[in-house]
Design a protein around this nucleic acid. Structure first.
Length: 566
DNA sequence: TCGGTCACGTA
DNA sequence: CGTACGTGACCGAG
C-alpha cells in the first residue's frame, strides 16, 4: 500500500461528498482526496454516489448546477433510519453515530465548547459538532466547506459500516447488505422529495375552477360575497330546522340541534349520522353540506390561489414520517378528494402514467415474516383467493381475517378467524405477535429494511401516532408499524428505480401516494414508462424479497388526467 | 394568540 | 379494520 495521493481523482461510482458555497462553487471530498471546484460537470460524468449532509439543504444547489444525480447518500436520512432519530440535522446525526447524547438544536446559544480552539474546530472537545460551525462556518467559504465535506466522508463510512453489520433478514441475501440497500433507497427518496417540491404536480387551473364552481359555487369577488355565499349554503340545511340560528360549524350546536328532531348521538361524525340520512331529509342535507364545506374550506378558492402556480400544485414533501417512515406531503397533495382528481392533468403533449401496488401490505407481511404458506398465496395475482381456500371461507371473510390479524382488531368477532389464521399461517402470526410484544414491553425494534423504531425512549403521549397512548397503547402501533414501515421501504426503493429510469424518457415522478406512483411523460414515451413502472417493481422485488418467493404486482394505467387512470 | 378537540380527506 | 398524516374550524384558557 502506497501513500494516499491527496490529489487522486475519485473512481467512477465512488462516494463523493458535495458542499455548495453560495456564488463560489462547490467543495468536494472522497476517500483519498478533496478539491474545490467552480462547477460540478466534470465530476458528474463520473456518476458518483453524491454524498450530502441532507438533500433538503444541498440538492437544490446541485440541481441548479445542471446535475441530475442518479445515486446519493443522505447522512440525515440514513441517520434517522439507523438510529430512529426524529431529527436529521448534522448535530443530531453525528452525535447518534458516535454514541453521544442528543445535542440541543443548532439554533441554541453558543457555549465555550462551541468556540474551542485557536481557529474554532468543527468538532468540540466533547466530541459533538460545534454549533458555530453548524450555523454557517461549514459553508462560509470553500476552505471550510472542504473540511465539512471531509467530515461527511468520514461519517458516511461509519454509517455504512453500521448498516453493513446489521443482520440481513432475507432468506437469500444479495452481495450488498439489506440495510445498505435501504440506505440507498431512503436517500434517493429524500432527493425525490426535493424534486417533487420544486417541480410540483401538474394541475389544470381551469378544470379545477370548474370543479370548485360545481361544488361550492362561483368564486366570490370580495369578502361580503364570500359571506353571502356561505350563508346561502348554510340556509339549505337550516330551512329543515324552522329557521333556527345555529352555527353548523360548531359540533356542539349541531348535536343539540339534532337532539331537537329526535336524533340523539354522542358525536356528529358523518359515519354516525349516515344511518339517519335515509329517513331524515334534514340529516341528509347536513351531510351534503358537510361535504361541500370540506371542499370550500380545505380545497377551495383559497387553496387553489395559495398552492397552485404555473399550472403546478406545490407543497412541502417529507421522505419519512416519524412513525413508520412513510412519505408525507403538505398542501393537500396526499388527501386530495377523489372529486378533484380530474384537475390533475398532463401538460400538452404529455400523459400521466399511474401505477399502484396491489395488496401491498399482506404481500409485505409474507415477505418479512418468511411465512411459507402466505408466500405461496402471495405468488397469485389475488392473494385472498388461496387464503380463502386455506381458511375454508369466502373471499371477503379471508380479506377481513388477514387485515384483522395485521392491524390487531379489537372489535367485532375476530376470534374464530384469528384461530384459523394461526393454523394456516403460523410464522406470519408469530411475527405480528412478536412486534406487538415489543410494543407492549417498550422494546426498540427494527423493520425488515433496518429502520429503528424507538419505543424505549419515547415519552408516553409523544406524538408518534398522536392517539397511540390513549387508544390502545404501543402494541397495535408496533404491529402496524412493522408492516406499514416495510411497505414504505419497498415503495421508496421502487420509486427510486423508477426515477432513475425516467431520465432517459424525459419524464418525472409527480406524485407519491404510499402505494401509488404518478409519472408525467412526453406522450410518445408513455408506453415505455408503463413498462418501466412494472419492470422497476420486478427488479426491486428481486433483491428486496430475495428468496421469499413473494410476487409483487402493480396495476398500470395511462391517461390525460389522474381520474382517467382509474 | 395558543393548544386541544372535532371532523374529514387520503393511503 | 387498524394505523398514519395534513388541514381547518371552533372553543376555552391565557
Amino acid at each position: 500500500m502506497g501513500p494516499t495521493q491527496l490529489s487522486a481523482a475519485p473512481n467512477p461510482g465512488a462516494v463523493v461528498a458535495v458542499v455548495p458555497v453560495a456564488d463560489s462553487g462547490f467543495a468536494l471530498a472522497w476517500q483519498g482526496g478533496s478539491v474545490t471546484v467552480p462547477a460540478l460537470t466534470a465530476f458528474a460524468e463520473l456518476e458518483p454516489r453524491w454524498l450530502w449532509w441532507s438533500a433538503r439543504t444541498t440538492a437544490p444547489a446541485v440541481l441548479d448546477a445542471g446535475v441530475r444525480p442518479s445515486r446519493c447518500w443522505d447522512l440525515g436520512t440514513v441517520g434517522r433510519l439507523l438510529h430512529g432519530l426524529r431529527r436529521d440535522d448534522a448535530a443530531a446525526v453525528w452525535a447518534a453515530e458516535h454514541g453521544l447524547p442528543e445535542p440541543p438544536h443548532p439554533s441554541g446559544p453558543l457555549d465555550l465548547l462551541d468556540l474551542h480552539g485557536e481557529s474554532g474546530d468543527a468538532v468540540r472537545p466533547d466530541g459533538q459538532l460545534s454549533r458555530e460551525w453548524l450555523r454557517g462556518r461549514c459553508d462560509a467559504d470553500l476552505r471550510h466547506a472542504e473540511h465539512w465535506a471531509r467530515l461527511a466522508v468520514d461519517l458516511q463510512v461509519e454509517q455504512e459500516a453500521r448498516a453493513r453489520a446489521l443482520p440481513d433478514p432475507r432468506r437469500t441475501p444479495t452481495s450488498v447488505p439489506m440495510t445498505v440497500l435501504t440506505s440507498y433507497a431512503e436517500s434517493a427518496a429524500s432527493l425525490l422529495a426535493v424534486e417533487l417540491e420544486r417541480d410540483g404536480l401538474p394541475v389544470d387551473v381551469e378544470v379545477a375552477a370548474g370543479l370548485l364552481h360545481d361544488v361550492i359555487g362561483p368564486r366570490p369577488a370580495d369578502v361580503a360575497e364570500e359571506h353571502a355565499l356561505r350563508a346561502r349554503r348554510d340556509d339549505l340545511v337550516l330551512q329543515h330546522f324552522a329557521g333556527e340560528q345555529v352555527d353548523l360549524r360548531s359540533p356542539g350546536q349541531v348535536r343539540a340541534l339534532l337532539a331537537r328532531i329526535g336524533v340523539d348521538v354522542p358525536d356528529t361524525r358523518s359515519w354516525r349520522l349516515e344511518p339517519y340520512a335515509k329517513t331524515s331529509p334534514a340529516v341528509a342535507a347536513l351531510l351534503t353540506w358537510r361535504k361541500a364545506e370540506r371542499t370550500a374550506t380545505t380545497y377551495g378558492w383559497r387553496w387553489l390561489d395559495d398552492n397552485v402556480a404555473d399550472g403546478r400544485l406545490r407543497g412541502a414533501w417529507g421522505s419519512a414520517d416519524a412513525a413508520a417512515g412513510r412519505m408525507t406531503a403538505q398542501a393537500g397533495l396526499h388527501n386530495l378528494p377523489v372529486e378533484m382528481r380530474p384537475a390533475v392533468r398532463a401538460e400538452p403533449g404529455h400523459l400521466l402514467v399511474r401505477a399502484d401496488l396491489g395488496q401491498i401490505e399482506p404481500r409485505v407481511l409474507a415477505t418479512v415474516s418468511g411465512d411459507a404458506g402466505l408466500a405461496a398465496a402471495a405468488r397469485e395475482p389475488d392473494m385472498y383467493t388461496p387464503v380463502a381456500a386455506a381458511l375454508r371461507c369466502d373471499r371477503p371473510t379471508a380479506k377481513v381475517s388477514v387485515l384483522a390479524a395485521m392491524y390487531g382488531q379489537t372489535s367485532g368477532t375476530a376470534g374464530a378467524a384469528l384461530r384459523d389464521m394461526d393454523r394456516a399461517y403460523p410464522a406470519a402470526m408469530a411475527y405480528l405477535r412478536s412486534a406487538e410484544d415489543a410494543g407492549l414491553n417498550r422494546r426498540d425494534i427494527r423493520t425488515y429494511g433496518g429502520r429503528l423504531l424507538r419505543l424505549t425512549t419515547l415519552p408516553a403521549g409523544e406524538p408518534v401516532g398522536e392517539h397511540v397512548a390513549v387508544s390502545g397503547g404501543f402494541g397495535r402501533f408496533a404491529r402496524n408499524a412493522m408492516v406499514q414501515g416495510a411497505a414504505a421501504e419497498l415503495f421508496k426503493a421502487w420509486a427510486g428505480t423508477v426515477r432513475a429510469g425516467l431520465t432517459d424518457l424525459g419524464g418525472e415522478i409527480v406524485l407519491c401516494l404510499h402505494d401509488e406512483l404518478l409519472v408525467h411523460v412526453p406522450a410518445d414515451r408513455a408506453p415505455q414508462a408503463a413498462v418501466l413502472l412494472s419492470d422497476a417493481l420486478a427488479r426491486t422485488a428481486a433483491w428486496w424479497a430475495c428468496g421469499s418467493g413473494v410476487r409483487f404486482v402493480a396495476e398500470v394505467t395511462t391517461g390525460e388526467s389522474w381520474a382517467d387512470t382509474h
